[in-house]
């Protein structure tokens, strides 16, 4: 310690300046993201008069839920669409995690011919924008009779397949972080490889897998473009919100309520997975 104190003042200044600049940059970035989010949420709870008053108060003086009430009732499709969005997200997770998770396990544990090429190729599906194939995809689903069904299977398939590649990489990194000897010990003491996977590996991987699931959930929950193109009478919340907010141009308080309503679940989930992100990406080396 005493040696550190003896360091010349110049070095101290340099360190101080460096730290200050770092903190300024971080603060700037945080403000860039947080200021719009903050205004989105306070505007949602203000009356129309207050929203358009000057100067704009930094906190709603007359706290109101009217905007939300209006948003939820103006379009009869909204309430069913919330449920549908949850269906889409959960089905997407089931597809992505069951296929992607098992594939991720294989990439983490086994050596096989063409492994390197395969693990790269699973990302190909991410290399072009989803919109580019949305129209042909819509046509395809129409022919299959799956277009715009009440249960949004077409959307779930679309998101699910799009997420498998990423899920493979995430889950492989989770499984790699679990010592293989833990499984082998279980196999020696009485389980099959499958049994060891379910009794040992899966419980240990659960927090990471949950994080991966929520990550997928947010993606499916927030997706607008494909949802708009692939639905008509049975839209998801994202699609309905988009239409409603677009139609409410000039009513900032209503638009904010729609945006806040949409963003809230995603925000909550993000805070939940925060703790697991390190585990999710910590061991990336497949």
């Amino acid at each position: 310690m005493s040696e550190l104190r003896l360091a010349p003042p110049v070095a101290d200044w340099r360190r101080f300046t460096g730290l200050t600049l770092t903190y300024l940059a971080v603060a700037g970035l945080a403000l860039f993201i947080l200021v719009p989010v903050y205004f989105l949420f306070i505007l949602a709870f203000m009356s129309r008069a207050e929203v358009y008053s000057w100067p704009l108060p930094l906190f709603p003086k007359h706290f109101t839920l009217d905007n939300f009430h209006f948003f939820l009732t103006i379009n009869p499709k909204i309430i069913p669409s919330i449920w549908r969005s949850i269906e889409v997200a959960i089905t997407t997770i089931l597809i992505a995690l069951s296929i992607g998770g098992l594939a991720g396990y294989s990439f983490a544990r086994f050596r096989f011919r063409g492994k390197n090429a395969l693990k790269l190729s699973v990302l190909f599906v991410r290399m072009y924008p989803g919109v580019a194939v949305a129209i042909p995809m819509a046509v395809l689903f129409m022919r299959l009779g799956l277009y715009d069904t009440p249960f949004p299977i077409a959307l779930a398939l679309n998101y699910g397949v799009g997420n498998i590649g990423l899920t493979i990489w995430i889950t492989a990194s989770i499984f790699l972080g679990i010592n293989e000897e833990l499984e082998e010990q279980a196999m020696v003491l009485g389980l099959s490889r499958m049994g060891a996977f379910f009794r040992i590996t899966l419980p240990l991987a659960a927090p990471g897998l949950a994080a991966a699931a929520i990550y997928t959930f947010i993606g499916a929950w927030n997706e607008v473009v494909i949802a708009t193109l692939m639905t008509q009478f049975n839209p998801t919340l994202a699609a309905v919100t988009y239409h409603t907010v677009a139609a409410a141009a000039g009513s900032l308080h209503l638009q904010s309520a729609g945006g806040a309503f949409m963003a809230f679940p995603a925000l909550v989930f993000t805070f939940i997975i925060k703790r697991y992100i390190i585990q999710m990406w910590g061991g990336v080396r497949i």
Binding site: E184, L189, R199, L204
Partner: peptide, 27 residues
């Protein structure tokens, strides 16, 4: 057979008791 690994391979999500009883339950 039984095997003792270099890493001990003690399952972190089970109590010591359940670790030891594992082979008796599932063997």
């Amino acid at each position: 057979i039984s095997m003792v690994f270099q890493s001990y391979a003690v399952w972190p999500h089970m109590r010591v008791y359940d670790n030891i009883a594992f082979g008796l339950r599932y063997g």
